[in-house]
Design a protein around this nucleic acid. Structure first.
Lengths: 136, 136
DNA sequence: GAATATATTGTACTTATTACAATCCCGTAT
DNA sequence: ATACGGGATTGTAATAAGTACAATATATTC
């Protein structure tokens, strides 16, 4: 299924900007921030505005087309892979990757009165490159 | 054990500011931000600086005296309860609470080359007050 | 008690994000 | 086809969280 269909399916009007933002997000495993996506697309779409990128990613997260990742780094990161998986943030280089070998916990059941809408499991530490660079 | 001992135990010099910041953090279940702690202590310690609060909380997190919580809200929150438990952020009022009934997952085992130093599991949605206010 | 190290303060700055008003663009009804 | 209306996009300005840094104060060691 192409990106246009994906957006429609989630009730999002598939404008050119939205399609390109989605495709950019979906084509990487780097878990980019809004700024990273903005930079990536700036050449191709010189009039693209930061505000559009921010609000579009926000919309994707609302509509369940992407995950919003709040990690200890400063900026929010996004992931077009909405399957349940564990994220890892390296405090050495700031990169965010998937811990594919780790089974992600199921979303918690709500306690009395709580409505759970999403959940996240993530770890922090050193990635292979940084641990060999900093540790030994 | 008193706060002074706790700080010493973790290799933190127990200055007056640090002790009061720790006690403030330990006396609440609200998971306050640096700013919230700063405001709370400002009356009592009029010369207290934001920078001190930020760097002290950072130090606590480094030394394992507190958990740093990165949630989808804008600011980092802190928790003096370092036991493994699940956090919940309400998108209605922004409050952060513990989901006591939910068993927190164990820290993930590192994949080849990764060094896992900490991990977090959290959920988002509506707290009891907001869900009855917004939903029905 | 002097010398040294560590902690705190205050200010300035950076960076991420949001607010908002103006403009643009697309789909539909005339 | 063309005009209308609403959502989408843009650009600028503002806010808010966090960090850098140099000066000062406080504590610790000799």
């Amino acid at each position: 299924m192409d990106s246009t269909e994906r957006l429609k399916e989630k009730g999002i009007r598939p404008s050119h900007q939205r399609i390109r933002i989605y495709e950019t997000l979906a084509s990487t495993k780097a878990h980019p921030s809004a700024e990273a996506i903005y930079k990536e697309l700036s050449e191709e779409l010189p009039t693209l505005s930061r505000t559009t990128v921010y609000s579009t990613l926000d919309l994707f997260a609302e509509k369940g087309l992407a995950q919003r990742l709040a990690l200890s780094g400063s900026e929010l990161r996004y992931d077009a892979d909405i399957s349940r998986h564990v994220h890892f943030r390296c405090r050495g280089c700031g990169s965010v990757s998937d811990l594919a070998a780790v089974r992600a916990p199921a979303p918690p059941e709500a306690q009395e009165g709580y409505v759970v809408e999403s959940s996240q499991f993530y770890a922090e530490g050193l990635c292979p490159a940084c641990s060999s660079r900093l540790d030994p």
